[in-house]
Design a protein around this nucleic acid. Structure first.
Length: 590
RNA sequence: GCACUUGUAGCUCAGUUGGAUAGAGCAUAGGCCUCCGACGCCUAGGGUCGCAGGUUCGAAUCCUGUUAGGUGCACCA
């Protein structure tokens, strides 16, 4: 189904052509002056120069061609050359009725679906999720859902950090604490136990301890490095331990991501890419791409046009060991081989931009991926506290994601209990949904690339541009619909059509609904969930205004009543679809 | 030092390919419940869009310079 604005544009363009002007001047945009009109065309002013004619004359000519169209309620030329447009109520109602009938409210899915791999989440094994992991998860999840809704074949990959010194540290520390474990018995040849010799909380304590200890004790660090090497060489006891660490970690991570309503199609790990490294390194060497610089194997990635110095992309350290770059490049190779993607999007902290620029350039320059593959860096800003500095706990430590979530949900729970008479059990469930919405909406409503201030007070507020306000609006509509069913005994799935709007707020609500497809299109094109947030906020406002101006259930005219029920049902459905794209769920009551 | 990035109301943020009087929310001051959820709606005040030039009929938006904050600059990830 064509977008309303495109249908208008089409007519205006035809009129421009009919008057002898170039089509491009007929571009129509949303009005900046809602008090004057709904849509506007500014092309006459741009055309004035080319045709050496007063803009208002051009505008008048064009308007004369369109005046009689039933599509328009009003189309006028205004000095110095604006064309102001209002759509007729009948036309708008027809459009809205079609929207309600169509799948996805008439949004047209991509004709040529692309395969898109989204790399987000990026947790490390044996380390708890902390606030630093929040944005990647929340933004990545939403971008994934939006892309999928837009009709693409999307693969969300968590890209687990399971490689490197951290594993050696844990193993070495474990050996120090429990040397009697069979994993350390060199002569052991049987089956290792299925049960892990530690719990997740023990694991989470071991890693930071070992990490700190290694900084003070070089000999311990040396041992850990050695253990890492032995693990990577396949020492069976260590591999068995590593599997335990992975399993215990992943189970816990899944639990936590689940709370956030975040899920991944793939649980690929850095270690999975290791197998691709030797071949890739050989390829880079033999292809003449890589050379030795200061003892390390590097690929130059600077370009003539650079205004800044871009350091070469390092493939192997001077001691011959691999590093993050190596793994990331190998992962690109792995993904290209497994999925043949058109796009790979990385949802990571924006501080890694230069680094990824190097990796992307290296991959392209050396043809590790084809020309057609688009490597996208979607960098997000820092989540700051109210003081504008990176978010910390009260005593200055790193805040665990779990704690952040429970802090928010208790705040919401208290609010619900003080306002509503509700069973504890139900209130808790609702508080979970509302709390998650508060966190996610608070994050997603900002442009991803900017830093933002995480303000518990503001995000959990039920007023203003917040997650809870959006949910409140949805719950309110649901409540009206239930009441309607109660009063009339009629199910809300009415067959009647929506009638042309009779009031301003009704027209405004309908117009807002027509913008659904435009919103999805832009949100996808820009990888920008905040577009969706903005839209549902506007839509919620439009609904609330309409609600206040009209008595829906009490209306005597049965046809109007049915029409309005249809209208708010559609509003509710659109809102629900949108919050789903943000990874948010609405409760039935709150 | 070099580079990237951000600067919009007291605070937190939007701002469509350059368009008309720069928008929201919070906070502040008022008004609206015998009526579908007042966690709502309406009204008011609040701005040199960091600063200075330039391009343009027209600039928060494009260009140049400048200033303030944030960030990054090969063997960490």
């Amino acid at each position: 189904m064509k977008k309303l604005i495109d249908m208008i544009t089409q007519e205006v363009k035809i009129a421009f052509i009919a008057c002898g002007y170039t089509e491009k001047y007929g571009a129509v945009s949303l009005s900046n002056r809602p008090d004057l009109c709904q849509y506007q065309c500014n092309g006459a002013m741009a055309a004035a120069k080319q045709y050496k004619k007063a803009p208002i004359m051009i505008a008048n000519e064009v308007v004369a061609k369109l005046e009689d169209y039933t599509m328009f309620k009003e189309i006028v030329a205004v000095a110095p050359g604006f064309i102001n447009i209002k759509v007729s109520e009948e036309y708008l109602a027809d459009y809205i009725n079609d929207m309600a009938k169509e799948e996805n409210f008439g949004f047209e899915k991509a004709e040529n679906p692309k395969t898109i791999v989204i790399d987000y989440g990026g947790p490390n094994v044996a380390k708890p999720l902390h606030v630093g992991h929040l944005r990647s998860a929340v933004i990545g999840e939403s971008v994934k859902r939006i892309s999928r809704f837009a009709g693409h074949n999307v693969i969300g990959d968590v890209h687990l950090g399971d490689w490197g010194l951290q594993m050696g540290l844990i193993i070495t520390e474990l050996k120090k604490r429990q040397p009697e474990l069979v994993y350390f018995d060199e002569s052991f040849e049987g089956e290792y136990p299925e049960e892990a010799p530690f719990t997740i909380s023990e694991l989470e304590e071991i890693y930071p301890y070992a990490n700190a200890y290694s900084k003070e004790h070089p000999e311990f660090k040396e041992e850990a490095k050695n253990a890492t090497f032995e693990l990577q060489s396949g020492k069976s006891g260590y591999v068995a331990l590593w599997n335990h660490i992975l399993n215990v970690s992943v189970t816990d991570l899944k639990k936590n991501y689940d709370k956030l309503n975040v899920s991944f199609d793939l649980w690929k790990k850095e270690s999975d890419a290791q197998g691709y490294i030797p071949g890739m390194v050989d390829y880079l060497k033999n292809g003449g791409y890589a050379h030795i610089s200061e003892g390390a194997l590097v690929v130059d990635v600077k370009e003539e046009t650079d205004t800044k110095e871009i350091p070469p992309c390092m493939i192997l350290k001077s001691d011959g060991a691999t590093l993050y770059n190596t793994t990331d490049l190998a992962t690109i190779v792995e993904r290209a081989e497994l999925f043949n993607p058109d796009v790979i999007t990385y949802v990571v902290d924006k501080r890694q931009e230069l680094y990824f620029e190097q990796v992307f350039r290296c991959a392209k320059k050396t043809n590790l991926v084809g020309e057609h593959v688009k490597l996208t860096f979607l960098g997000f800003g820092t989540m700051n506290g109210k003081d504008g500095k990176p978010f910390k706990t009260r005593d200055g430590g790193v805040m665990r994601l779990e704690n952040l979530i429970s802090e928010i949900t208790t705040a919401v729970y208290d609010k619900i209990m003080s306002n509503r008479d509700m069973q504890e059990e139900e209130a808790k469930e609702i508080a979970n949904k509302v709390g998650i919405a508060a966190i996610k909406y608070g994050d997603l409503s900002n442009q991803a690339s900017k830093d933002y201030i995480f303000d518990v007070e503001r995000f959990t507020s039920f007023e203003g541009d917040t997650g809870p306000y959006i949910l409140y609006t949805i719950v309110r509509i649901k409540s009206i619909l239930n009441k309607y069913k109660e009063v009339t005994g009629v199910d809300t799935i009415a067959t009647s059509k929506m009638l042309p709007a009779t009031g301003e707020s009704e027209t405004a609500l309908m117009l807002e609904l027509t913008k659904f497809s435009d919103t999805i299109t832009t949100a996808f094109a820009e990888n920008a969930p905040h577009r969706v947030c903005q839209y549902i906020y506007d839509l919620s406002n439009a609904f609330n205004k309409f609600y206040h101006e009209n008595k829906i259930i009490a209306n005597e005219d049965e046809k109007v009543r049915a029409s309005w029920i249809q209208l708010i049902t559609l509003t509710c459905n659109v809102l629900n679809t949108c919050i789903e794209l943000l990874g948010i769920e609405a409760p039935d009551r709150m």
